[in-house]
Structures are given as structure tokens and as C-alpha cells.
Amino acid sequence: MVSDKFVKKLKTFALKSSAIVAFVLLWEAAPHLGLIDPIFIPPPSVIAVKLYQLLLSGELLVHTAASLERVFLGFIIALAIALPLGFLIGGWFKTFETAVDPLLQVLGQANPFTLFPVFMALLGIGELSKIGIIYWVCQWPVLFNTVSGIKSVDPVYIKVGRSMGLTKFNLFKKVLLPAALPAIFTGIRMSAVFAFFMLIGAEMIGAHSGLGFLIIQSQAVFNMPKMYASIVSVALLGIAINYIMIKFERKAMSWKEDIAA
């Protein structure tokens, strides 16, 4: 019956990819049929060739590395600040939370794009302001999800821990943290996506490297295939990051994965 299963999987795969295939085919045919101007929107085959060339020349790699470094730094700083802060606010200081929550909500709601000029004024137009803005957008989903995750831990788990004489630290490590982990991971995954959005935006303003820069630069010199190749790279990288995050999450919470299965 293995072959039966395989055929079924194949069919699902075919169905799932049908729209994408149709879209790519239509796109490929459109310039030939005179529906769109290939100067502005080159066909996928041209873009694919360009992407391959960029990959071979090493140019794509350099810019991808520059982008990833920024995302990584901003993301790590955000985790280092927002996770402990979230634990403190959610777990220990009830009054403190009541006091700071409205402020945090307002700050978290502020549209980060409008804050670009502020970051540039404060940190210049170099690496610092880019990493700064990525840190800024990353910290909110992590912070809010950590606080609510810790606060919504089932009190009965805490009762069990306390009744078994756990120290405050062990209660946190062995009960609060694992119980809040699913919510914390949601925050981390959201912030990874935000970080990536923000990065491309940041690189489109005053950068000399990175995928965002590559897009803007190709557009400036009217190299349309290169511009689209960069855009596709950004999309693929986004998908890859999301995939890695999901894998990581599954691994960390294998006890939960079974529920879905």
C-alpha cells in the first residue's frame, strides 16, 4: 500500500503546485503574446538566468550575507532584551506591569517606518541605525507574547510545583518557562518575519550592501532582470527563514507536534 500512499502524495503535490505553475507559465507567455512589456516585466526564464549569473559571480552571496548579518544582530539583541524583560514583567512585578503596559502598547503600536528618520538622526545612516530599527521591530512581538505566555500559565501547574517544594528559580525554569514556551515561540517567529520586512526597507535607504540595496541599485541603473532576480532572492530567503523557524519550533516542542499528527 506504500505505492498507493505515494500516488496520493504526488497528486496532492501536483494540485498544490498547479496554481504556481500556471502563474509562471502565463507570465512566461505574456511578453511573447504582447500582453506586457518585457522591458518592465521580463519573463521568468530571463530572471532565472540572471539569478544564476548573480549566484555564480558571488554578488548575490555577498549581499545576502550582509543582509543576514544585520537581521541576525538586530534579532539577537531583541531577544536578549525582550525575553528577560518579558519574564520580569509577566512573572514577578504585577504593579510594574500595570504601570508600564500602556506605555509599551503605545510604543509597540508606533509604525516603525515612521521611526526610520528618528533612528537615522540618532544613530547615523550606517550599520547602527539599520540594526537598531531591526532590533526595535523584533522586540515587540517577543515581549508581548512572552508576557502573555507567562501570565496565562495554568495556575494548577504552579500549585504542583509549589507543593513539591520547588525554589523560585526552579519554578521558573521547570514550570513557567516550558508552559509559556509555545507563546514565546510564536513571538519569536513573528519577529523573525518582521525583521526581514524591516531590513529590506532599511536597506533601501542609504545602504551600500544587502539585498534591499541590490533591488534599489538595479532599479536605478534600469537593470530590470537583476532587480527581479533580487526580489525573488528576498522572497526565497524569507521562505527559508520561516521554514527554519518552524523546524526549530517543532524540535523544541516535540511533545506538541504529536497533537497535530
Binding site: 495554568d154 494548577v156 501547574y157 500549585k159 504542583v160 507543593s163 513539591m164 517544594g165 520547588l166 525554589t167 526552579n170 521547570k174 514550570v175 516550558p178 508552559a179 514556551l181 516542542m253 511533545w255 506538541k256
Partner: peptide, 29 residues
């Protein structure tokens, strides 16, 4: 105190631990 153990009505097992892990929980300290 560990000399007075409590059993609650339901859903008081830690879902992130196996059966064995749950029973080991109090012993770890």
C-alpha cells in the same frame, strides 16, 4: 512540604513531560 503531596482533579500533568518525566519531577530537587 514534600511530606504532603497533592493530587489535583485533572489536567495537572505537565504536557511537555513524558509520563516518566512527570513522575520524576518532584524527585529532581
Amino acid at each position: 512540604s514534600r511530606d504532603r503531596a497533592i493530587v489535583f482533579q485533572q489536567n495537572a500533568l505537565f504536557p511537555w513531560r513524558t509520563t516518566l518525566g512527570n513522575v520524576e519531577f518532584g524527585l529532581e530537587s
